[in-house]
Design a protein around this nucleic acid. Structure first.
Lengths: 231, 231
DNA sequence: GCCCGGCTGTTATCCAGATCACAGCGGGTG
DNA sequence: CACCCGCTGTGATCTGGATAACAGCCGGGC
């Protein structure tokens, strides 16, 4: 049995929503409520919960606490595990400040930068160390997730160092496409490409000019698919 | 004929790679080269190029210049279009500095923030305006893409204002799931969920504790699928 | 001049993930 | 007590995207 990538991503969003509801005092919920809150279909929520090993009653729905407990078991890393951030530029700082206050279990445990001026600073409560110490720090305190927020030209080399140092998943904010051994999980977050995609689909209904092709050029169109149960 | 989302995203990455090669003086390329550079299969590159309306010769491959021209036609927004950034916190600043130097055609044309202390500053060459002016500025200078880098609690309301002001695509860095009229393209970039996903798949090979389910809990495992042509 | 090899363009096939559909249940109502 | 309603759990089906497969072409070698 293995969980699919999109499902794990959804579990994380279920958990966020359920935590808010828990703070608000809600004790039980129905698949439909979660679905509406997140723009999914109720059937998909039920299926995800089933695969995650959660169960509910047909009249009372699912107990919020039990769901959150189960999600913690599935999603939370071991006690002293966490993130290793490479690159403390603008984006790295944004991540540090974001994660500093947000995620309790998924903290940045080590941050590295190649710029001597940045090293030694403490950003969001995390000390920034010189990149040379990456291997020695991770040898003492292994971490399973690396985050790349460096220039694209440095990404491949740093990724390899991270993997050699024991990292088994990398979140790559770089435009570089990483080539790493099988078994290492890579999550690419290509902000530039996402912005270009949005710009494309914003224009998509307008006719395009027709320069290179001799034939008429298709007018690309996209709809946001309706994401709700037909009922 | 419509282009799929993943395809448009790939086109953006093809373009980035081809631009680098063009700077290096390379004039022609083969599907295999692009595929290897980006971790895709040659067949997929050929298919994308075909759908994009590009053609090459079986002996010389594709001319780099022609590909880039075609991609510009498809991906570049109209001359005075661009991005409208909402929220100039850490992440907003990172985006401004990233886009300031990178994308020539996809610039941030307006930036807004609700914090009076932030307004009036100029970040990365873009003046930060008070959020109240969103409608009046966009009325004078319509932009087709909005970028949300605000707290999740403000996201839905701001998104609706953007759409009323003429925005047709939104890049949502917020954890909120937006409910917007059909026809508005939404690209969610959920950094928190992505980090949790990476943490999960980093752990995925370890046995999990088995608390709630009476039965043995499955050990979820994921492989990065091999992404190359079998040949 | 003829064959061979490799690359393009395109069709056919496959697959994961999402959607649909429905059996089963349990409590509420009359 | 019998019926009804709505929700869970789950098999069946659908679909879009990726992969595989191959016909056609062209230039180079012999």
């Amino acid at each position: 049995m293995r969980f699919s990538e999109p499902m794990v991503e959804r579990l994380a969003t279920y958990r966020r929503t359920l935590r808010r509801w828990q703070r608000e005092g809600r004790e039980r919920t129905f698949s439909r409520e979660l679905a509406d809150a997140l723009g999914l279909s109720a059937a998909q929520v039920r299926r995800d919960l089933m695969l995650a090993g959660c169960s509910g009653s047909s009249t009372q729905g699912y107990p919020v606490d039990a769901l959150l407990d189960r999600f913690s078991t599935l999603l939370d890393p071991p006690e002293d595990d966490g993130l290793c951030l490479c690159g403390v530029g603008h984006l790295g700082r944004a991540l540090l400040s974001y994660l500093g206050r947000r995620q309790p279990k998924l903290r940045v445990r080590a941050a590295f930068d190649s710029d001597p001026a940045t090293c030694g600073q403490s950003v969001g409560g995390v000390a920034v160390l010189p990149e040379e110490q990456l291997e020695s720090v991770l040898a003492k305190h292994p971490l399973s997730v690396g985050v790349l927020a460096v220039p694209a030209s440095a990404a491949q080399h740093l990724a390899e160092r991270l993997v050699r140092a024991g990292v088994r998943a990398i979140v790559n904010f770089t435009a570089a496409s990483l080539r790493l051994p099988h078994g290492v999980f890579v999550e690419d977050i290509d902000i530039g490409a996402s912005l270009e995609k949005a710009a494309f689909f914003a224009q998509a209904r307008r006719p395009h000019p027709v320069p290179p092709a001799p034939e008429s050029v298709p007018v690309p169109v996209s709809e946001s698919p309706p994401r709700h149960e037909a009922s």
